[in-house]
Computed example of a mutant assay.
Amino acid sequence: MARLPLSARRRRRNVAFINLMSAIMLIYYYVWLIFGLVYRRKCWQIERRLRIRELRGENLYKLTGESDAACISQLRMDRRTFHILCEMVRDVGGLRGTRNTSLEEIVASFLYVLAHHLKNRIVGKFFYRSPEPVSRNFNACLLAVLKLHPLLLEKPEPIPEDCTDGKWKYFKVNSY
C-alpha cells in the first residue's frame, strides 16, 4: 500500500491534534462547571441554614416575645412566668442550651408538647427541627423540670382539728 502524500499526513495529524485539544478543552470546561455547581449548591445550603435560623428566631419570638396572649394560648403561661421557668431550669435543673438550640427554645418546645399533646414530628415542623433533637431536648428538659419538684410542689399541710375560722394555710410559700 502506498504512503499518503506529506500534505495529507500533515492534515490528518492536525485533525487528530485538533480533536484531542477539543476533547481536553471540553473536559476542562466540564470540570469547572462541576466545581461551579458544587460551590453554588454549598452557597444554597448555607443560605438555607441561615434562613431556617431566622425562621426559628421569628417563631420563638412569636411564641414568647410578641404578646402575653400568644404566649398564654400557645405555652399556657405568660411571658414573665416563662422566663422565670427558664431561669429556674437553668439554675436549679442544670439545663443548658446547646450549640444549635437556645435554652428558651428547648423550654418552649417542651411546653408546646405538653400544652398541645403533639408528636415530635409536628413539633419539629413547628420549630424547624428534625424529630430526633426535639425528643432529646424534651427528655433533657423533663429531667431538669423533675429536679424542680421540691421547689414547685410543696406537700400541703393538713388542716388542724381545732381550726374553726377557715383561715389556714394550704401551702407554704416558696419565693424563688
Rank of each mutant, 00 (worst) to 15 (best):
A144N: 06
Q45P: 07
V123W: 00
T81V: 05
R10F: 14
K167T: 06
V113I: 14
I84F: 10
A144Q: 02
D78P: 03
L152Q: 07
A70W: 01
D162F: 08
L118E: 09
R10S: 12
I24R: 09
R11M: 09
N14M: 15
N137I: 10
G93D: 02
R48K: 11
P133Y: 05
L6W: 09
R56Q: 06
R13M: 08
N59R: 13
R90E: 14
A144T: 06
M88K: 11
G93T: 06
Y61T: 07
N100H: 11
W44A: 09
A70D: 15
G166T: 03
W168H: 04
Y170V: 12
A140M: 09
A108I: 09
E66A: 10
F126Q: 07
A140Y: 02
S22T: 11
T101M: 05
R121L: 00
C43P: 00
R76F: 09
E87V: 01
K172R: 15
G57S: 09
V15W: 11
L118S: 03
K167E: 12
P158L: 08
K169Y: 07
E54Q: 15
E58G: 10
R3E: 09
E105V: 00
Y170H: 12
T98P: 02
R121G: 00
E157T: 13
V89E: 01
W44P: 03
L153M: 11
L103T: 05
I159F: 04
E132N: 15
Y176P: 08
I18Y: 08
V145Y: 04
P156Q: 07
I27F: 14
L114E: 10
P156Y: 09
N139P: 04
R13K: 14
L6A: 14
Y30P: 00
K119F: 10
Y29A: 05
I72Y: 06
E87Y: 04
R129N: 00
R96L: 12
L111K: 01
R13F: 08
R11Y: 11
V38S: 13
Q45D: 12
R11W: 07
A23D: 04
S175T: 08
L111Q: 02
C141W: 02
N137Y: 11
L37G: 10
S109P: 02
A115S: 15
V38Q: 13
G65I: 03
A23I: 10
R10I: 15
H83V: 03
F127K: 00
E161D: 01
